[in-house]
Design a protein around this nucleic acid. Structure first.
Ligand SMILES: [Zn+2]
Ligand SMILES: [Zn+2]
Ligand SMILES: [Zn+2]
Ligand SMILES: [Zn+2]
Lengths: 157, 157
DNA sequence: TAGAATACGTTATGATATAACATGTCAACA
DNA sequence: TGTTGACATGTTATATCATAACGTATTCTA
């Protein structure tokens, strides 16, 4: 599985992502309707986060509704079902790169090219849980988002 | 140093916070003007994050300007100088509890009572840097925010 | 005290997000 | 096979969060 920073056959990411969504949602008796499918396709088309209004514009171009709830609802569905994530730092959404495994990711956001990668969260989450436990806090959800430079942009300002 | 979840003499937090800001800013030749001071006092008055418009309302009550930039500018100053943090998950701001030590904190947000604590970030950040390094990414800034239940609310739904 | 830098206040607008409600789709089942 | 109920889609309207641009006031420095 390549990450966003590697050169890779990206068409594979998109087709795989859609196919996975089909399979998983069918098993859950959830419907991947045309708007939802197109929304996922839009997110999968890039390894970066898109604002809800960017998604909305593309949905409108594809013949769907033009009002914010159209995008927000499809995005909410995809987030709930684990096929997309909200990147809170960016107020934006990105396709999940491993919807098959239950996970709570760490996001790496390139400040230069805006590429976004999801990486193994286990060690970070272990540390976070320990830190929280030390003050009696129970973690239910968390966002771990780093901004910096990806390998392709490491020499840029 | 108590954290937000402990019972503690909270008036101490506020007076200490303001005094620290005075001292540190004087040393930096930065001005803790009346709006800035009041903004910090407002944030210090609670161990939770306040939205910019909540802060603005209290500033207006205290006789300062009533327009959003008044609050946003004071908040930006305090964040830049390390006396407040923006909690991106909440689109809100909170006073920093240890402005004396250079740090990039982990935030623990109680879903029930909205208390917010800042905890030692070192182990979490170490893990995050290692994870990032593994894919060639250089972390410049990061937000680590957990939502869950604080010790006082651990038995709640 | 003049001039420059900084801060404060306002108006106006931009960007992100949701409430509320009408219409449409589809499958279960009387 | 027509009715019903659940879900999905679309719209209007509004709420919430944030910044651009500009004029005035204050403070610093020479
Ligand atoms: Zn790809
Ligand atoms: Zn990059
Ligand atoms: Zn306190
Ligand atoms: Zn609590």
């Amino acid at each position: 599985m390549p990450n966003a920073f590697d050169n890779h056959d990206h068409s594979h990411c998109a087709t795989t992502g859609l196919a996975q969504a089909e399979t998983i949602l069918a098993a859950r008796n959830q419907r991947l309707t045309p708007v939802r499918r197109e929304t996922l396709r839009i997110l999968l088309s890039e390894h970066r986060a898109l604002g809800a209004y960017d998604v909305l514009e593309r949905l409108a171009d594809a013949g769907f509704g033009k009002q914010p709830p159209v995008a927000y609802r499809a995005l909410e569905f995809l987030v709930d079902q684990g096929f997309a994530h909200k990147i809170t730092r960016l107020n934006a959404f990105a396709a999940c790169m491993h919807p098959d495994t239950d996970h709570a990711p760490v996001f790496l956001i390139c400040r230069i090219c805006h590429a976004l990668a999801e990486t193994a969260a286990t060690p970070v989450r272990t540390a976070l849980n320990a830190t929280a436990h030390a003050v009696g806090f129970t973690v239910e959800r968390s966002s771990i988002e780093a901004v910096g430079r990806c390998p392709n942009c490491k020499d840029a300002a």
